[in-house]
Design a protein around this nucleic acid. Structure first.
Lengths: 179, 179
DNA sequence: CGCGTCGTTGAACAGGATCAACACGCGTGG
DNA sequence: CCACGCGTGTTGATCCTGTTCAACGACGCG
């Protein structure tokens, strides 16, 4: 975006396929960067296409993945467009935690959270300073604890409420429910 | 969204298939409303699935459509998250005009624009009042003329610049270019 | 030990929200 | 035919949320 600004439009976590869109779209309109050290697997487009051709249900599954990504993206539009600062942060935290839980990367009500405040700002369309202040509000309200890279959810119900978080857009209903 | 607010996450124009996502996603996370009188065609999921199975290239085409929708959605995140009011409006106008042109619904540098200021506000995450003021800025700068439901682009290059509009995300390169 | 990244704090500022009132065109019903 | 109501656009004044700038502290690392 102009003026040296950037917008983070999605976070990917372990197990995601972050660039499925390149399979059918020629010019790429996003860039991808890692926040933590990662293991990456690259898959040839030709391989994928052969796989899809051979097994239509694979196609459906991948397609479904990209549709969910799109749904998340729409939710982010709403997040950034409608909610005020603390709610935006709360919403992002809720989404992140639930996705981590879905791939088994949580323990009890805690998980790793490798995203710093500046990145959180780029993701929510607010300044890093205000991210900091919003986080302090959430901490003061006893909803979360966030030190270093470890996030603990202290009051899920209230965090969900504050963040106006409605997990249906993540389309996880087949797996565990949102408690 | 909470508090009686709503977020418009996309505009669909003639020829669009606005609910392809329902093909693979069970619970729907958006609602669709018409802004103008419309002709609608409904297609059975079963029909579509049979079609896709029989002709893999149809699958690819539909999939591609949904991927472009996702790309547009990401661009909206950036629009709402990073740009200031007049640029947001300019960006939406640019996108709308280009998509209308792609389906042949423009004449010269004008097209129908059936979206009112309140809706524009819901789409850009700003109040209707501020939409009004931003539109006046764009008019005063000689970039557009917008009366009733008819939009004229008076200075495309400058509108594009003001809106920080980079049309690659629309993935239209196969058709006419963005002048 | 020194440096860079990240988090935190304060003060001043500004962009946009909010509230309220008014103008205008249009369709409806009296 | 006119009165009325409604939706939409327009304007002004005030308030507030979040930005910006700047400085400082804490921590990890070479």
């Amino acid at each position: 975006v102009a003026g040296g600004k950037r917008q983070i439009s999605a976070f990917h976590i372990a197990g995601d396929i972050p660039d499925l869109q390149s399979l059918h779209l020629e010019v790429l309109d996003v860039s991808i960067a890692t926040v933590t050290p990662c293991k990456l697997a690259f898959i040839q487009h030709a391989t994928l296409l052969r796989l899809c051709e051979a097994f239509p249900r694979i196609t459906a599954a991948f397609w479904r993945e990209t549709l969910i990504e799109a749904a998340v993206s729409r939710e982010w539009v709403a997040n950034v467009g409608q909610r005020r600062a603390p709610a935006r942060i709360a919403h992002v935290l809720c989404e992140f935690f639930l996705r981590m839980r879905a791939v088994g990367l949580t323990e009890d009500h805690a998980c790793q959270f490798p995203i710093n405040q500046a990145q959180l700002g780029d993701a929510t369309g607010m300044s890093a300073v205000h991210v900091n202040r919003s986080l302090q509000e959430l901490r003061a309200a006893g909803l979360i604890s966030l030190k270093g890279h470890s996030l603990k959810i202290l009051d899920w119900a209230e965090l969900k409420a504050q963040g106006d978080f409605e997990p249906s857009y993540l389309h996880m209903e087949r797996r565990q429910d949102a408690a």
